[in-house]
């Protein structure tokens, strides 16, 4: 059971993708999937394919941009890059996430004190 994976909470996928893209200059889909797994220590399980609808939606929102390039294995791949709007979104989401998280933790701590 050590290998157990949790489904990622809905809505978090955007944040994860934005976070991964913020660290790297540009990545293609497969690399994003791997990077998400790495940073989450394989705990968060993404149905890998669901990256693609999310990426399309982010393209539409103008958070990321995409360009075709060539991989190390000499295959055509679409590389995604973070845009300013995406960075702003990431900060907003992280701030909000931390606010909520902080609040939850406070609740849990007071519970524990009793």
């Amino acid at each position: 059971m050590a290998n157990r994976r949790d489904e990622i909470p809905p809505g978090t996928l955007y944040m994860l993708i934005l976070r991964v893209l913020a660290r790297h200059k540009e990545l293609h889909g497969y690399e994003i999937a791997n990077a998400i797994q790495q940073i989450s220590d394989d705990v968060l399980q993404v149905e890998e394919g669901s990256l693609y609808p999310a990426l399309q939606r982010m393209l539409l929102k103008g958070w990321v941009t995409a360009e075709w390039g060539v991989t190390a294995g000499n295959r055509r791949a679409r590389y995604y890059r973070l845009l300013a709007a995406g960075r702003k979104q990431l900060h907003a989401e992280m701030a909000q996430y931390q606010r909520v998280n902080g609040a939850i933790q406070k609740v849990l701590q007071t519970e524990g004190a009793v």
Partner: peptide, 10 residues
Amino acid sequence: EEMRLHLDLR
């Protein structure tokens, strides 16, 4: 094509 690449690499 994008998805195909993903599957192949995996």
